[in-house]
């Protein structure tokens, strides 16, 4: 049985999920998909996020996807990932898609996967306005087969300057940087491509991919 955790159902996550679910539903495999997100869909998200109604992103996503893909068991976790919640949300053997929008959470996920789990496959994606990247972390039998996503090539993840959503005070005004649906889509596609390569085509010979939607280039690289 595949236990898939999708952390973040916003720009990247809401685009990634339908395609991932369609593939897994058709595969006939036993799959449990847990969607983790403490945020709500709001009207302003309609420019680039896929949702059927307003409300908590995890709950709304599960509601929609479970009706469309009956072969998959869905769970909604309407909460943000924190040091405490990671202990019960992320388990050994998980396949994790990190679709979050801040490096502080990426660091938490990276540390938890590399330090607390013995077996995990993590696909982490993020973007700026017109470019982005994905990173893959694989741990098997308590050995890192690839670099954690917080590594020396990415000091911005090792020492993030942003904050996790749970660290932002109630009523605090957050000005979000603009994003482009095409870039979210490109990153989601790279994550899904890597998922397919790893689990259905013998593995990836890369652990990071960059994409630029303006030049329409992508480049995969094996970081060691």
């Amino acid at each position: 049985m595949k236990h898939v955790k999708v952390i973040g159902a916003g720009g990247i996550g809401s685009i990634l999920l339908p395609t991932l679910c369609r593939f897994l539903n058709a595969s006939g495999e036993q799959v449990v998909i847990t969607i983790i997100d403490g945020d709500d869909y709001e009207n302003k998200n309609q420019t680039r996020q896929l949702f059927s109604r307003l409300g908590n992103k995890a709950k709304v996503s599960v509601e929609k996807l479970s009706g469309e893909f009956p072969g998959i068991v869905f769970q909604a976790k309407p909460e943000y990932l924190t040091d405490k919640s990671a202990l019960y949300l992320l388990k050994d053997g998980d396949i994790i898609f990190s679709c979050v929008d801040n490096h502080k959470t990426r660091l938490l996920i990276s540390d938890f996967c590399s330090e607390e789990l013995e077996n995990v496959v993590l696909f982490s994606g993020g973007n700026s306005f017109t470019d982005g990247n994905i990173q893959i972390f694989i741990k098997k039998d308590d050995k890192n087969l690839t670099l954690p996503i917080a590594n020396s090539y990415h000091p911005e993840i090792m020492k993030p300057s942003d904050r996790r959503p749970d660290e932002i005070g109630c009523g605090e005004l957050i000005v979000s940087e603009p994003q482009l649906i095409f870039t979210n889509n490109a990153v989601a596609t790279l994550m899904l491509n890597a998922f397919y390569s790893h689990f259905y085509n013998g593995g990836c010979d890369y652990n990071e991919v960059y994409v630029d939607i303006l030049t329409n280039n992508s480049r995969s690289v094996q970081r060691t």
Partner: peptide
């Protein structure tokens, strides 16, 4: 030149 990881999503 190492491009920083995309921070949004």
């Amino acid at each position: 030149f190492i491009k920083p990881a995309g921070d949004k999503g």
